[in-house]
């Protein structure tokens, strides 16, 4: 099974880009399953369902969505196998810019849009720098010049990534995404594969539901700002 991980900034067009790509795969006679991981709620499963493919949803709720994501990869794999899928698309939202969902052996696509600002690729961090493919949306409404500068920024941060322009509205570019998926070797099993970038530790009282501000309420793995080293504005 080919395991495809899709992440990106909010409202960048992850689902739209994937819907067009899945249609191409369906035309090739490939059985696709989709799973959406989100924090509190999502409506994207409905959009995937309209393609007539099996869809699963995982809501992390009170758990850090990124930890929730890793803890469920094996289960998503088994579910997709039961659906007899040849390709499983795992779309994850709620990633903070500290985390990256990329897993060795899985094709990882980072979806961002040209409107986020020219210096934003840097802020997106490991989610972008560990991706195999960076898909950039909304190129139809910004100038060619800005697109070229933006793409350059992306290439500087992730020289190995294939950068693909994709239009989530009309699907332009999705054929290349489909080709990338087909060129990616299927994975034997996901158990035992490794994250490309480790997730941050977070085991403190706030993880356990504490809401009150102040040191007496803080226990566990708590890190404080060192103001002696902080830059003076």
């Amino acid at each position: 099974m080919r395991f495809i991980i899709v992440a990106g900034t909010p409202s960048s067009g992850k689902t739209s880009a994937m819907l067009h790509t899945i249609r191409h795969l369906q035309n090739d006679g490939i059985r696709v399953a989709a799973c959406k991981i989100d924090c509190l709620e999502t409506g994207d499963d409905e959009r995937y369902r309209r393609l007539g493919i099996p869809v699963a949803v995982g809501l992390s709720d009170y758990i850090c969505p990124d930890h929730f994501y890793v803890a469920n990869l094996e289960e998503i794999w088994s579910w997709a196998e039961q659906q007899k899928a040849g390709v499983v698309i795992l779309e994850t939202a709620g990633l903070c810019h500290r985390c990256a969902p990329a897993v060795n052996g899985c094709l990882t696509i980072c979806v961002i849009d040209y409107l986020v600002g020219i210096d934003t690729p840097k802020k997106i961090g490991p989610m972008l720098s560990t991706a195999d493919i960076v898909a950039i949306t909304k190129g139809d409404i910004v100038s060619q010049a800005e697109r070229e500068v933006f793409r350059h920024q992306v290439t500087m941060l992730n020289p190995d990534a294939r950068v693909i322009d994709i239009n989530g509205l009309n699907g332009r570019g999705s054929l290349r995404l489909r080709n990338e998926i087909l060129n990616h070797s299927p994975l034997e099993k996901i158990s035992g594969t490794a994250l490309r970038y480790p997730m941050p530790a977070a085991i403190c009282s706030y993880c356990a539901g504490e809401t009150i501000v102040g040191s007496p309420y803080q226990m566990g793995n708590v890190k404080k700002i060192d103001f002696g080293k902080a830059e003076v504005c």
Binding site: Y114, G117, I118, D140, I141, V142, S143, Q144, E146
Partner: peptide, 12 residues
């Protein structure tokens, strides 16, 4: 391919 269209804007 470079593109110039009516609906493009500078956003920077």
């Amino acid at each position: 391919v470079a593109e110039v269209s009516q609906k493009m804007n500078f956003v920077m």
